[in-house]
Each structure stands twice: as C-alpha cells, then as structure tokens.
C-alpha cells in the first residue's frame, strides 16, 4: 500500500495525536497502549481503579450511530480517568436540522472540548473530523462505517496477550462477515503489526473483501480446514442486512456452514481461545455451548475494553503534554 503521506494521527514526535486507525502504526505504538492498559488493572482484585489523570479535560462522545457497549465502556473509561464527559446523541442534535457535520463540530469545539470520541456510519468520517478540528483537539475513532474500530481491535489484542503471552507466532482465524466489518479490518491490521504468524478469514466469498491479498490474509471457505491448528478464534456478528442483499440464503444455512460448534472447535488447538466483539447471535454464528464454554473469553473482552480505552485516552493526552515540554 502507498502510505508515504504523513500519518495524520501522529504528532511531530511520531506519537499518537489522534487514534483513527491502526493502519500505518508501528509495533511500539500498540505495545505501549497494551502496557499502559495493564497498569489500570489492579493485580490483586482484577478491578479498575479511578485515577486523577485527566482532571479538567473535557471529552465529548459523539455518536452518530447507536451503540450501547462501546459508548458505555468509553464513558466509564473517561470517568475513571476523571475527565468531564458529555455524551452527544446525534439523533436529537442539529445535523438532523440541516446543520453540516463540520458546523456541529466547530460549535462543540467552541465549547472547549479537548477530545472527541466519534462513531459515524461513513467510512473515513473520523479522518474527516480529525482533519478539520483545531490542532489541540484529539479525535478517537469509535467505529466509522466499514473502515475501522481500532479500540475494539486493541482490546482484542489485550485479551489475546492475557491468554497467550505473545501474539507473535500465533495462528488466528476470523469467522464470518469480513467484508462489512470495521472490527475485522482493525483486527487484521493489529494482528499484522504485532506479527501474528498467520491470519485466516473464514466465510463465503460474498462476505469476503474483494481483495483479500491486499489485507494479507488467507481465505478459507471450509471452516474445518480454516480452524485446523489455530490458537485464537474470533467470531463476528452476522447482520440481518446480509440476507436482504442476497449475500446469504439464511441464518440457518450460515450456521450449518460456519456456526462455531463444539465439534468444530476440536479442529483448533486444544488451548485455543474463542472471542467475539459482540453483540453475539446465539445459534447464528456461535453455539451457546461454545459462547459460554471454557474456551470462551467473550465477557473478559468487555472488562478489558475499559482498561484499553483508558490507555488510549491517557496515552494521547500524555503525548500532547510531552510535546509541550
């Protein structure tokens, strides 16, 4: 890929100023976040304690698309860092009244926001916002269209690291709707940067990106072959729209072909972990026995999401501070 242009999410010292995508980031950018996240988890209790780091900083959660889990974990993360938090539900806001996205942003900026956490239905929306905010304002991408969801991918990496020590040398299989998933795009980038040994994607051609080679993944249409010998299995949600646009016949047929069942899990390594960014569709992409089984780490992912998002936010503010000095 041609990525010679300066990465707009990095500052003059090459540190994160925004967090928009994992594309173009280095190993150290990712490990730094994972290491900082670890410091927020109390080793004795496993709980996340409140810290005073961001006292006086204003963070606005700008959600142009509905979300429960991501918005909530961001809000908790921001509050644990002692930031002032405003949630903006765009359904009730001015873009509906004809105000452009930029006017909305500039107004919020004038209210002295230090950071925007943005979710939007257009791929590239977070980049667009980052290009147009004032230089001291930071932007975190909480999911843009089908492009990226970098904090979700980072919490997945954190979860893998918890169980597997090092991501290097792991074989990872991602099952389901690869083409329409921003989470998967970011996961693939994270796994590539952290040098996972092999990244497999499993599903029918209709759910695969048009150019999987460009992403550096191996495509499997047969789930048993795809799961053979893997260390990590990531399941992603199958959305109803896919049936309406004739990409799949039915949920039932999808489950028959690609549903993660106990029998199929046996093809992976015995100590393989099962992940899912949620929300899960039981009986569509995953069987309850697996989702609630011993190898599942699905609920841990949610808890780690808070620590990882705290780490991303804190790292960005610390980098800005370091730049001032």
């Amino acid at each position: 890929m041609r990525l010679s242009k300066p990465n707009i999410q990095l500052n003059a010292q090459g540190k994160l100023h925004h967090f928009l995508t994992l594309e173009g980031l280095k190993h150290t950018h990712l490990t730094e976040i994972l290491d900082v996240a670890q410091t927020f988890i109390d080793p004795a209790t496993g709980e996340i304690n409140k810290v005073d780091s961001l006292h006086g900083k204003a963070i606005m959660n700008l959600f142009f698309e509905p979300s429960t889990r991501t918005l909530t974990t961001f809000e908790i993360a921001e509050k644990r860092l002692s930031a002032d938090v405003v949630n903006l539900n765009i359904e009730t806001s001015s873009t509906k009244k004809g105000e452009t996205l930029l006017d909305t942003l500039w107004n919020l900026e004038a209210m002295l926001a230090d950071m925007f956490v943005v979710r939007h239905n257009e791929s590239g929306a977070a980049h667009f916002i980052a290009k147009h905010v004032a230089p001291q304002v930071h932007v975190i991408n909480a999911g843009d269209g089908q492009h990226a969801h970098p904090t979700q991918a980072m919490l997945d990496m954190f979860t893998i690291r918890k169980h597997k020590k090092d991501i290097f040398d792991l074989k990872v299989a991602i099952i389901g709707d690869i083409q329409h998933s921003r989470v998967v795009r970011s996961q693939i980038q994270a796994l590539s940067i952290l040098e996972a040994r092999e990244i497999r994607v499993i599903g029918p051609t209709t759910l695969m990106p048009s150019n999987p080679d460009a992403l550096g993944v191996h495509v499997y249409h047969d789930i048993e072959q795809g799961l053979d010998g893997v260390d990590v299995i990531i399941n992603v949600r199958l959305q109803n729209e896919r049936m309406q646009s004739a990409l799949l016949p039915s949920e039932k047929e999808f489950f028959n072909l690609y549903g993660l069942t106990k029998e199929r899990l046996k093809f992976a390594k015995a100590d393989a972990i099962v992940m899912h960014p949620g929300p899960i569709n039981r009986g569509v992409e995953i069987d309850s026995e697996v989702a609630d089984g011993e190898q599942s780490v699905i609920l841990e992912q949610v808890t780690y999401g808070i620590a990882v998002r705290m780490a991303v936010i804190k790292t960005i503010f610390d980098n800005a501070q370091a730049l001032k000095k």
């Binding site: 890929m1 791929s123 269209g145 089908q146 921003r182 990106p209 048009s210 150019n211 460009a214 992403l215």
Partner: peptide
C-alpha cells in the same frame, strides 16, 4: 473502485 484500497478502507465498492 472495488480493489485493494476499498478492501483496506471499507468504502462501499463499485465493481
């Protein structure tokens, strides 16, 4: 265009 870049950026594709 449906190709390497749309695969990366998650932009809706035109084949």
């Amino acid at each position: 265009h449906s190709g390497a870049v749309s695969s990366h950026l998650g932009l809706a594709e035109i084949s």
